[in-house]
Design a binder for these strands. Structure first.
Lengths: 147, 147
DNA sequence: TGACTCATGTCAGCATTCTGACATAGATTG
DNA sequence: CAATCTATGTCAGAATGCTGACATGAGTCA
């Protein structure tokens, strides 16, 4: 079972993918009744915490391309969850903001997502969470600028 | 910045998504020159470690639907990386196996992916990795059967 | 045995995301 | 000042994955 090669069962990368997959599924499950996808929710949450973010910044924050985020933003704008000025105040960057409707929609979603996080962290001590936090941050850092 | 709600900067769920995203990008980068996607590689690696896996089992192991894996498997079979019997030995389950060509193709990919894992784990002690492993496994477990 | 449930392989259609490309605005650099 | 580089918003086409659906084989149970 564990020959020379990397064994999937003990690979941190594989487990990382599994955890991310299970988390995504759990979030989709609680967001679906609200008619919201994970990327959809991420966009609203980002705008709530940092109003005025541009399309490209939102894309980076939600880990999708700016083209994908643009499609989503146009839909959110059309449905009245988000507003953007008709012309860019400076350069080409269009700062986006939540409308009251967007804020209301986000409230329910946040409660749903929070319940998932609580369930996910059940049975874990603060020390364990902090340790995992450090390790994940180290991984991200090493993979990003390490060539 | 950190009001009542969950702050993305300190959310373990968000960091998990980020780490997974960065890992996936790093893997895609080293696999692209080999003409291989991450799911493609996952399928081959699973078959190397557990020959005879069925389409549905491979799908679960690679975290995609069995429909998606079926499309991939048919392409791999057509191109001679994988072989499946024409008829099911028992039931409808078709056990898949790597061909010599598939094994050769996997060797290069494994080396590339291993280099990514090494880079990802650089600067982390064995204790830290073990701690992260435990936490991730706990998360997966809590999210899976917790309703 | 017969009805029921569950898992599998597979086809078709749809949704989401990505890659490629273009024009443009700001920053940088010689 | 002019050229170059970088980042942005956006459009179009392609790839990838998903949901829905169907028939079929195996196990369960009364």
């Amino acid at each position: 079972m564990s020959q020379d090669g990397v064994d999937l069962e003990t690979s941190l990368g594989y487990l990382l993918k599994e955890a991310s997959s299970v988390l995504r599924a759990a979030m989709e499950e609680v967001l679906r009744p609200l008619g919201m996808s994970v990327t959809h929710y991420s966009c609203l949450e980002l705008l709530a915490q940092r109003p005025g973010l541009s399309n490209s910044e939102l894309a980076r924050g939600a880990f999708v391309t700016r083209q994908s985020m643009n499609v989503l933003l146009q839909a959110l704008e059309r449905d009245g969850y988000v507003s953007r000025p008709a012309e860019a105040p400076v350069g080409k960057v269009l700062p986006a903001r939540l409308t009251p409707r967007g804020r209301r929609s986000l409230e329910k979603a946040t409660a749903a997502v929070r319940s998932v996080e609580v369930r996910m962290l059940a049975g874990l001590s603060g020390d364990e969470q902090a340790a995992a936090f450090r390790v994940l941050r180290s991984m991200v850092h090493s993979l990003r600028d390490g060539a």
